[in-house]
C-alpha cells in the first residue's frame, strides 16, 4: 500500500516543461500529503514506514527536486522539507539507510543554501528550511555540525547576517538556534570554531550592547566595533535599524541569550576576549528584565536564559567582566523578578 501511495512521487509525474507542472501535479501533492502523515507516525510502525520511504531512491530524488524547484507550489516544497527532515533525523538514530539512499548530505547542504540565500527563495520557504536545519542540528552531533559549517560559501557569516538583519522572525529564531547547536556540537579546535564564536559574540554585542533604538545601524556599528568591515553587506548605511530588546519577541530574545551563554559555556579551547561593553550590556539587560518581570511563562523563560548567561560569563571571566556597579543593579532586578515569578516557577518545575 505504501508503494502505491508513493507511486505518483516515485514515478515523478510532474511535467517539468510547464510552469504549473501539468495535470498530475495535484495527484503528486496528495501523494506527498499522505507520505508526510506516514513519515510522522509514532512507534515501531512509524520507524518501519520511514525506513520503507527512505529506501525508495526515486521518491527521495523527486522530493529533493521539488524542494529545489522554484515553479513548484510552496505547500509542496514545505511538505518535501518536512518529509525529508523526518526521514533524515530518524535514520540518524535507527538505521542510517537514508545516507545510502542518495542524498542525506546533499539534503542538508540544500537546506543551508535555501536558508542563507535571501534573494533566491521566499522568506517562508527559508523559514521552513531554517527550522528543519535547527531540528537536524539539535538532534545530530559533530558530523551534522561539520557538514553545515563547511558547506560551500561563508555559512557562518550568512547565519549571523540572518540573525542581525532578517525581517522574518522565524528565520532569525532558527539562525540563533542553529548557531547555538553549532557551538555545542562543533568541538574541533580549528579556524571554523574560532570564526564561529567570534562572529556570534560580535552579533550579540551589536544587539545586546547598542540596541537602544536611538541610533541607526551605522552608528551602532561604529560604536560597537570601532571599525566597519568591508565584506559586510552595507544594509546599515541605508538606515537599517538593529531591533531593540524591547520590541523583540520573548522566544527570539530567549534564543539570543541562550546562544550567548552557550558560547561562553563551550569555550574551553578558545580565548574569548571581552567583546562587549560591560556597562551598556548590563544596563540593557537590567532594563530588559525590568520590562519582563511580570509572571508569565515567556518572561520566566527570558529571565532564566539571562540568569544562565550571566552565570556562564561569570565562570568564564572569573567575575572579571562584571566588576562594574551595574552588575549589582542587574542582580537586584533579577532577584525581584524571581520572587514575583516564584509560584509560576515552582509549578513549572513540578509539572515538568
Amino acid at each position: 500500500l505504501v508503494s502505491k501511495i508513493m507511486a505518483p512521487v516515485t514515478s515523478d509525474l510532474l511535467d517539468h516543461t510547464t510552469d504549473d507542472h501539468g495535470t498530475w501535479c495535484e495527484v503528486v501533492g496528495r501523494s506527498m500529503e499522505v507520505m508526510s502523515h506516514l513519515s510522522g507516525a509514532q512507534g515501531e510502525t512509524g520507524a518501519k514506514l520511514r525506513h520503507e520511504i527512505s529506501s525508495c531512491t526515486e521518491a527521495i530524488r523527486t522530493l529533493s527536486r521539488i524542494l529545489g524547484c522554484n515553479k513548484c507550489k510552496e505547500e509542496m516544497r514545505q511538505r518535501a522539507i518536512w518529509i525529508l527532515t523526518r526521514l533524515y533525523t530518524d535514520t540518524i538514530g535507527i538505521s542510517g539507510s537514508f545516507e545510502y539512499s542518495c542524498c542525506g548530505e546533499d539534503f542538508v547542504r540544500m537546506l543551508v543554501n535555501i536558508f542563507t540565500q535571501d534573494n533566491e527563495y521566499s522568506s517562508s520557504i527559508r523559514g521552513y528550511a531554517g527550522e528543519a536545519l535547527s531540528n537536524i542540528c539539535f538532534l545530530g552531533g559533530i558530523s551534522d555540525a561539520t557538514l553545515i559549517i563547511q558547506t560551500s560559501g561563508d555559512v557562518i557569516n550568512s547565519l549571523t547576517q540572518v540573525l542581525l538583519h532578517e525581517e522574518n522572525e522565524t528565520c532569525r529564531q532558527a539562525s540563533a538556534e542553529i548557531l547555538e547547536c553549532l557551538c555545542t556540537h562543533y568541538t574541533k579546535d580549528d579556524e571554523y570554531l574560532h570564526k564561529l564564536k567570534k562572529a556570534i559574540l560580535k552579533v550579540i554585542g551589536k544587539i545586546l550592547c547598542c540596541g537602544d533604538g536611538t541610533h541607526n545601524g551605522e552608528d551602532i556599528e561604529s560604536q560597537c566595533d570601532g571599525t566597519q568591515e568591508n565584506n559586510e553587506p552595507n544594509k546599515d548605511a541605508q538606515g537599517f535599524q538593529v531591533e531593540t530588546l524591547s520590541t523583540m519577541s520573548s522566544n527570539l530574545l530567549s534564543s539570543l541569550l541562550c546562544l550567548c551563554g552557550t558560547v561562553y559555556n563551550t569555550s574551553s579551547v578558545i580565548d574569548l576576549r571581552p567583546q562587549l561593553d560591560a556597562s551598556s550590556f548590563l544596563n540593557n539587560l537590567r532594563d530588559m528584565v525590568v520590562k519582563r518581570s511580570g509572571p508569565t511563562v515567556e518572561n520566566l523563560s527570558v529571565c532564566k536564559a539571562a540568569g544562565n548567561m550571566v552565570i556562564s560569563m561569570l565562570k568564564y571571566y572569573s567575575g572579571g567582566f562584571f566588576k562594574e556597579d551595574n552588575f549589582g543593579s542587574l542582580i537586584e532586578v533579577l532577584s525581584s523578578a524571581s520572587k514575583k515569578m516564584l509560584d509560576l516557577d515552582y509549578s513549572m518545575v513540578c509539572s515538568s
Partner: peptide, 17 residues
C-alpha cells in the same frame, strides 16, 4: 532549575570573584 537558584548562584560567583 528555578530562577531563584540561578540568581543565588550568580550572587555567589560574583562574591567569590
Amino acid at each position: 532549575r528555578t530562577l531563584l537558584s540561578l540568581v543565588r548562584e550568580a550572587k555567589e560567583l560574583h562574591a567569590m570573584a
